[in-house]
């Protein structure tokens, strides 16, 4: 984030409104009362103990709700049965993974025992490829346009950012409403001679819609990061290039793009990580259908673990671990890029 000035250099804040201080009164009282036992704790454990005290709640929640699940996930993936509690589950070794990889023809998802998994993998793969590449392209164009000398740049930036804040459910509903039979799309095509069509029942179009809607919903975020990267490129570089009579296209390829590359890489990996996990807006927009044409990995995990009967937590866990591995690789890639950028910055 833009580093605000250190507090000591900021001009003093204006006097607080009275109602706010009244509102904060009980909070202050509680926090003040908390001081008595904590002072005692500090006497007993010293300053180091207090550091542990401050860190404890956050780390405890991490441990219970992030780290512990990771471990349990591993156990789930090597145990079977439909029970939820670990002691009621029997050890099955690599059976869950074997089931996932049980295919007669590795090029054809339908030949696998878990054809839904491989369909989801295939769908997710094509989704990731299409969504990320198109979205980055659109975001880059938008960022380049917003980086021009523009009246009301922050207004336009906000325009493209607006859908980012919308909830996936709202995004899904908005587009379902537009793409339905009596929807806006059909009514715009109608005067051109097209008959109303139920777009989301069409396998190809439903997939395209999912890609398009998710680009619509998220491109503002990536535009913002790319724009920040563009604005960090020193203006005098462009001026120098212009003085040299460089053509605009050449300026883009030789100056803008190379200097933007660190940001671009970060943005691509971030988008990849997000795209692999695609779920919410698709679930509301198409529910994975028609058929399994928009069934993605997260929905597969959700349905295997929670919806289909009997629940198969082991299979869902195994699938989520495979997905987790992909994400870990992508995240390490991102950290690697970030570190490389940092080193460049130091030099």
């Amino acid at each position: 984030m833009a580093q605000p000035k250190p507090p000591s250099e900021r001009p003093a804040a204006p006097q607080r409104h009275d109602w706010l201080s009244v509102l904060l009164q009980p909070v202050h009282l509680v926090m003040g009362l908390a001081d008595y036992p904590l002072r005692y704790l500090q006497k007993k454990t010293g300053i180091g103990g207090m550091a542990a005290f401050f860190l404890a709640p956050n780390m405890l929640i991490f441990a219970i709700f992030v780290l512990l699940p990771l471990v349990i996930n591993l156990i789930y993936s090597v145990t079977g049965g439909s029970a939820l509690f670990l002691d009621e589950r029997s050890f099955v070794g690599a059976d869950q993974y074997r089931q996932i990889f049980d295919c007669t023809n590795y090029l054809d998802p339908m030949s696998c025992q878990e054809d839904a998994f491989w369909t989801a993998v295939g769908n997710t793969f094509w989704f990731v490829v299409l969504q990320v590449s198109l979205m980055i392209l659109v975001s880059l164009i938008t960022a380049l346009i917003l980086n021009r000398e523009l009246i009301g740049r922050s207004f336009w930036r906000a325009v493209f950012f607006f859908p980012v804040l919308l909830s996936p459910v709202v995004v899904g509903l908005i587009w379902r409403w537009i793409l339905q039979r009596q929807g806006l799309l059909n009514s715009m095509l109608y005067p051109l001679g097209f008959e109303p069509y139920t777009w989301l029942s069409d396998r190809t179009f439903a997939f395209a819609a999912v890609v398009g809607v998710s680009i619509w919903a998220h491109m503002g975020f990536y535009t913002l990061i790319l724009l920040a990267g563009l604005q960090a490129i020193p203006k005098d570089l462009y001026e120098a290039a212009e003085m040299d009579g460089t053509k605009p296209a050449r300026i883009f390829w030789r100056i803008t793009l190379p200097l933007l590359m660190p940001n671009l890489l970060v943005v691509i990996v971030l988008a990849l990580i997000k795209a692999v996990q695609v779920f919410d807006e698709v679930f509301v927009l198409t529910g994975g259908g028609p058929g399994t044409s928009t069934l993605f990995l997260t929905q597969y995990i959700y349905e295997t673990g929670f919806v289909s009967l009997p629940r198969n937590a082991g299979l869902a866990a195994a699938a989520s671990i495979l997905m987790g591995l992909v994400l870990v690789v992508l995240t390490l890639l991102q950290l690697g890029i970030a570190r490389k950028n940092e080193n460049k910055g130091k030099r």
Binding site: V66, L68, N73, Y76, L84, I273, Y302, L327
Partner: peptide, 17 residues
């Protein structure tokens, strides 16, 4: 590191916890 662990990866065990 927890940035690396999205909800969809730990859905099932988190539910059991």
């Amino acid at each position: 590191a927890t940035l690396m662990v999205p909800l969809s990866v730990i859905l099932v065990p988190l539910y059991s916890i």
